[in-house]
Design a protein around this nucleic acid. Structure first.
Length: 832
RNA sequence: GCGGGGAUGCCGGAGUGGACAAACGGGAUGCGCUCAAGACGCAUUGGCUCAGUGCCUACGAAGGUUCGAAUCCUUCUCCCCGCACCA
């Protein structure tokens, strides 16, 4: 067994992929093959979502992502575009800080190590980045501009501070992200309940752009499902705002069903409503407080089917039209920051209200009834949500409820008791984090002047390196950082110790790539105007509602400030699928099914890995790793290399010319649409054809190498160089299809040829079963079809001696007159 | 619950009205090469039948449209993903 393996290994060594890869990677870098500048040429900006550099290094998912992008970038470059294809690192974030707490390694060092490791591994994949533009978001050169934009936003009121309920772990002494709360417990302390704390937080007013974000998403060339996810996330709903009088003050509620206004039997205010206590009567206070305490411990959303609960506030509202007294309840199911945080409850026509009314024995009043069915408030089993005719609604009775919506809204507007409104689910973006490893928020608190923005000239506010980890936010315990002077009055003041959400970093990094070394401004507008928008963005679908909305928001806000001219950052988006482990499960350390790209490169070469990853399935689909798959792909790559080394140049046959031009045409289209798997199949087919040819034209061979170079750039460069080409194949012109050379007759010939082989084999099989030994096969072909039947090829495929005659050949050997059986496309066969 | 996407041969996965028993790859089997194994080449890989033919059964299930359906329509089952009390 050992012997065999050793032998195999030495055989594989015939092609020294490692050497070839190193050679070309170094040459690309040395000759600045992929370095770009603005110019007159048509541009194409290809970008992959930049990674968070984790210490565990690159995994195949990353590799897959970058390979998809690299193939596209190479393709566009060869097509003559000026391709901007950069790489950077989303380097701030929690894992680095947690590592610091756990292992005592400074986040900066941790991150730098991780980045170096990423770069090294990425280079080995043969990715054609313009490395000179690299960004690390943890560099002050970068995050300075986060602070700069923050100040701009602040000036224009796009940033504000407000009290908000956040997840707080008393043991970490820090706010947690929603993702860090599991079943109401802290992710690091599973015995500690997360508290909901009301804290002053910084927000970006993304809701200002809700409508535009919604409108523009439809125009994007993005996967439909991502667009739909964003639409749902923004969640526009049109309805009516209605004012109820409470303690002689007007309180608004939002409804999409103004037609049911007469069915309102109570109001429900959110338990998290900031003005809740104003409507709680003294005698109900105790009960309410107890209720609030109770829901606090179950406040996490992890409870999927939370039982609706509530308590009476003691107050009443006055119905705007009937002037009836309506009790106000406090409920756990009303969202505080949507609409006005208070709803009008119509138990007859809303399932949630219905359940609440049943539980607390509140009246149910039908106001819309279907025509074909008799309903009664007493026997109602569930809320009636359908359309129908109005009842119990004074002058609106007998109207269709759909009409009544309009009429009631108008009536309210006349009396100034309501108005048409639009509401969005999209909330303002909470950006403050009580964490160290992020961009310091450039705000100062002065006892006299209050909240004061830092002066632009004082940027960057540098993150101090010497801090203590493990006790809440390390910034707040760093005296040197915290204590400062007020930029306005010069008195003693304190710095904001919150840092920005790292999604701020990734909201504009694609702009910085256009001018990454600029130290005067975040980027030169001219350069950004040349490169933007990103023509092709590539990344996973998990960012559908976070990064992709934030970045769109930033782009629009920066447009309004005059920094950029485009309204949308990413013109076209491609979502790659997930690569699962060989066992079908998501790759994870604990499962032990993780595949490391570098190991695969060592074992099978970068070109094999690249080719394999994009050939398994359509790149947008989830797939499974397969050892067999990459092994056979490696064999294929080796075979290509070996065959191409000894190929004979001359004149291509008409047939091969037809084939290669057809392949060029199809491949171009497949690549443009990310059907790489199909492209590879076509390339394989072309290669098989090539193997059959005695000789081919050098230019046709060149075309093949060019197409191959997208997937296997290293061996392609090597082969390209060996045929005497001076420049890089990576920078060569993409082959153009010569339509005139495509001749469908060859397809027809192939089909007939394959059919004939099938027929012969069938006959041979039958003869064998009958015990007859066959040595020779004779084929009788129509004279004009004879070029389609190559004796040598036939003999190879059948494994017998074979002779091909034209049917009109006088000298043919045909003892049983089988030539008479020959038909167009179907030769006669005789065996003996 | 709402929204989106799927279900294809031993497996992965193409294919969106005829040229489909269905690309391509993997696996398996057989043959060739070889002392032998690997590698390589060729063939087979739904069933029956047969000198290259013909038939049947098949693309989640059941119906329908059509001269004709894996492909279009309807209903159902199952799987995946996203959102989740948004009034």
């Amino acid at each position: 067994m050992n012997k065999i393996n050793k032998f195999n290994l030495s055989k594989e060594k015939v092609v020294d992929f490692a050497k070839i890869e190193k050679k070309w990677q170094e040459l690309w870098e040395k000759k600045k093959a992929f370095v770009v500048k603005e110019g007159k040429k048509r541009k194409c900006y290809v970008l992959e979502m930049f990674p968070y550099p984790s210490a565990s290094g690159l995994h195949v998912g990353h590799a897959f992502n970058y390979i998809i992008g690299d193939i596209y970038a190479r393709f566009k470059r060869m097509q003559g575009f000026n391709v901007l294809y950069p790489m950077g690192y989303d380097a701030f974030g929690l894992p680095a800080e947690n590592a610091a707490i756990k292992a005592g390694e400074h986040p900066k060092k941790y991150t730098e190590n991780a980045i170096n490791n990423f770069v090294m591994q990425q280079k080995r994949l043969g990715l054609s980045y313009d490395w000179g533009r690299m960004i690390k978001t943890c560099d002050a050169d970068y995050y300075k501009w986060n602070q700069y934009f923050f100040l701009k936003f602040f000036k224009k009121g796009l940033v504000y501070r407000k009290k908000s309920s956040v997840n707080w772990c008393p043991k970490c002494k820090s706010v947690l992200a929603n993702e860090q709360v599991h079943n109401g417990k802290c992710w690091r302390h599973d015995d500690v309940d997360v508290e909901i704390k009301s804290l002053e937080q910084w927000f970006f007013r993304i809701s200002n752009y809700a409508e535009e974000l919604l409108q523009d998403v439809q125009k994007l060339d993005w996967p439909e499902r991502i667009k739909i996810m964003q639409e749902n996330w923004i969640g526009k709903s049109e309805g009516t705002e209605i004012f109820f009088e409470i303690n002689s003050e007007k309180w608004a509620v939002f409804t999409t069903r103004p037609d049911t206004l007469f069915g309102v039997t109570f109001l429900v205010i959110s338990a998290q409503h900031p003005r809740l206590m104003e409507i709680v009567k003294e005698e109900n206070k105790k009960e309410v407080e107890e209720f609030l305490r109770k829901i606090k411990s179950t406040s996490e959303k992890d409870n999927i089917n939370l039982e609706k609960e509530g308590v009476f506030s003691g107050s009443y509202a006055i119905h705007p039209l009937t002037k009836e007294k309506i009790p106000i309840w406090i409920g756990n199911f009303v969202v505080a920051d949507y609409g006005s945080g208070m709803v009008m409850a119509v138990p007859a026509h809303d399932q949630r209200d219905f359940e609440f009314a049943k539980k607390y024995n509140l009246p149910i009043k039908l106001v819309v009834v279907p025509l074909d069915e008799k309903l009664s408030s007493n026997t109602l089993k569930e809320a009636y949500l359908g359309n129908g005719v109005m009842i119990n609604s004074e002058e609106f009775n007998d109207l269709e409820n759909v009409e009544a919506m309009e009429h009631i809204t108008k009536a309210l507007e006349m009396k100034k008791l309501g108005k048409k409104t639009v509401n969005y689910k999209l909330r303002d973006w909470l950006i403050s984090r009580q964490r160290y490893w992020g961009t310091p928020i450039p705000i100062i608190y002065c006892e006299k002047c209050g909240i004061v923005p830092e002066k632009e000239d004082n940027l960057p506010i540098v993150l101090p390196e010497k801090v203590k980890f493990g006790e809440g936010n390390p910034l707040s315990t760093n005296e040197e950082f915290v204590n400062t002077k007020c930029p306005k009055c010069g008195r003693k003041a304190k710095r904001e110790t919150d840092t920005m959400d790292t999604f701020v970093d990734s909201s504009w990094y694609f702009l910085r790539f256009c001018d990454s070394a600029n130290s005067k401004v975040p980027f030169d507008k001219k350069k950004v105007d040349y490169w933007m928008p990103v023509d092709q963005y590539i990344g996973g679908a998990e960012h559908a509602c976070m990064h992709l909305i934030y970045a769109r928001f930033f782009c629009k806000a920066l447009r309004d400030f005059g920094f950029v001219s485009v309204s949308e950052p990413f013109k076209r988006l491609f979502n790659q699928g997930m690569i699962h482990g060989e066992d079908g499960f998501v790759m994870s350390k604990s499962r032990g099914n993780v595949v490391n790209p570098s190991d695969m490169i060592n074992k099978y070469s970068a070109d094999s890995l690249r080719l394999f990853l994009v050939s398994m399935a359509s790149p947008d689909k989830d797939t499974q790793w397969s050892t067999n798959g990459i092994e056979s792909m490696h064999k294929f790559v080796t075979k290509i290399f070996e065959h191409c080394k000894k190929i004979k140049f001359g004149k291509s046959s008409k047939r091969f010319e037809s084939k290669i031009n057809k392949t060029i045409k199809e491949l171009t289209n497949e690549i443009e649409n990310f059907r790489y798997n199909i492209a590879i199949i076509k390339l394989r087919e072309l290669f098989s054809e090539m193997e059959r040819e005695e000789e081919i034209a050098k230019s046709d061979f060149g075309s093949f190498i060019k197409m191959l170079s997208l997937f296997c750039p290293h061996i392609a460069e090597e082969l390209w160089c060996r045929i005497g080409s001076k420049n890089f194949v990576s920078l060569a012109d993409w082959p153009v299809c010569d339509e005139k050379k495509i001749d469908e007759k060859f397809e027809e010939m192939d089909k007939n040829f394959e059919k004939a082989i099938e027929d012969i084999n069938n006959i041979l099989k039958i003869m064998k079963e009958k015990g007859k030994e066959i040595e020779k096969v004779y084929l009788y072909v129509l004279p004009k079809e004879i070029e389609g039947y190559n004796e040598k090829e036939l003999a190879k495929r059948i494994g017998k001696e074979i002779k091909v005659f034209a049917v009109n050949d006088k000298k043919k050997y045909d003892p049983e007159n089988k030539s008479g059986k020959a038909k167009p496309g179907k030769p006669g066969i005789y065996v003996e």
